[in-house]
Design a protein around this nucleic acid. Structure first.
Lengths: 224, 224
DNA sequence: TACCGTTTTTGTACGCGTAAGGAAACTAGC
DNA sequence: GCTAGTTTCCTTACGCGTACAAAAACGGTA
């Protein structure tokens, strides 16, 4: 189509498509048909190639998903105004990350990365670490604090998403109700008394509250 | 081999093996050869049957893994002496759960359950909820608090395990170091200054510290 | 031109989880 | 004994991720 823009500068067979093309096509596919339909064969067909050709641009499917997540985060996590108060800034940054990731339904398969943040959402990480330091933590404590916030956030998303998925294709909720209904009040009095309310209580969104609690504890610990 | 011990009381073709046998055999297989080698075909061969026969005892492979995890938790999470002081009791119970699960290397594939605890480790959940109430929280706050502790714990395990797995079969750490080495100090001063120390800092085990911080915050919030 | 080293693509093949439907093994009623 | 009903098991087949090896497409040299 386009004329060779410059004399080739690399040796070897020229690639028919780029890694970015792979990611972009994968994103289109996921957006259009859902993450289940993203298979290496389907993606190759969409690109007009063969499955194994993809593997020269991407180590394996997991890496593709990580790239996809990075791409998504890079587009979604645009820098916003954050509060000036350091504590509020930490909260806002963590909640921004959480919101962006929770809105990404196919996230769970990838969201077990400890270094996801290292590629595109680093600015938010910076805000969190800086905010913690501004609150009186040492840099070491701040990094550890960030890790704790990340554990909490990732755990919330993964647990909640998986629960939703399981609920979708089985009667697991019913099963849990049965378990809670059959509890022995003598042995597990608190849980037995809570009984049916457990399902409702655990269905509530307590991410912000827990986040604040964790942060409070982190700061108290740093000060103490 | 053995004579029919009693006239059959159920209608239909008698099963050649039980669900418990499936779980037990799967456990043996996992213990002996690792979770990667646990495939439906291999398991069926071990039992002396066919893959599809398993599906009448187990909905799918994920359910098998959940059963396996329950089985494991039921054997590992024996009730121990816990401290009398409620705050210490909560910490000890959470740490017991964390320790048991973190020692179970194949956990990650399943550890995205929000209702794992509902089958075998309920006693610990009871201890946590009860301890939180004893610390002054309402039952509702206690349940929410337990959820937060669970998010944090599950997140820590999943993130850490996946990081270890990725580190095992790739040079992802190197990649992360490159990212951190190339940071612009003007834009991300905190992270740039931390630089190489990031890897060391995030490698430390901060689970107990974060757990205490979270608990502190939960109790402060409940009291305030 | 012919060849070489390099990089990318392709073809083939394996084991995987599991959907679908038929076969097999039992009990209950006749 | 015979059938009908019920439960469990097996056969076949599909699409999946991807290992492995051969082929193809280039730039560089002779």
């Amino acid at each position: 189509m386009s004329p060779p823009p410059a004399p080739r500068k690399t040796v070897g067979r020229p690639p028919r498509f780029s890694r970015q093309e792979v990611v972009d096509t994968a994103r289109r596919l996921v957006d259009a048909e859902g993450v289940d339909r993203l298979t290496m064969r389907r993606l190759a067909a969409e690109i007009g190639s063969t499955p194994m050709a993809l593997y020269h641009h991407v180590r394996n499917k997991e890496e593709l998903l990580v790239l996809l997540l990075d791409d998504y985060a890079g587009r979604t996590l645009r820098r916003r105004e954050l509060p000036a108060d350091p504590r509020e800034r930490v909260l806002a940054a963590a909640e921004a990350i959480h919101r962006a990731l929770a809105d990404c339904p196919w996230i769970v398969e990838v969201l077990t990365a400890d270094d996801l943040m290292a590629t595109s959402a680093l600015w938010y990480v910076e805000q969190i670490v800086d905010g913690l330091i501004a609150c009186g933590l040492t840099p070491e404590q701040a990094v550890h604090g960030y890790r704790s916030l990340w554990y909490y956030t990732a755990g919330e998303i993964v647990v909640r998403a998986t629960a939703a998925r399981r609920r979708a294709d089985s009667d697991r909720a019913t099963y849990r109700e049965q378990v809670f209904a059959g509890l022995d009040p003598a042995e597990l009095p608190r849980l037995a008394r809570l009984g049916a309310r457990w399902a409702d209580l655990t269905a509530e969104d307590t991410y912000p509250a827990g986040l604040r609690a964790l942060l409070t504890g982190l700061l108290a610990r740093g000060a103490g």
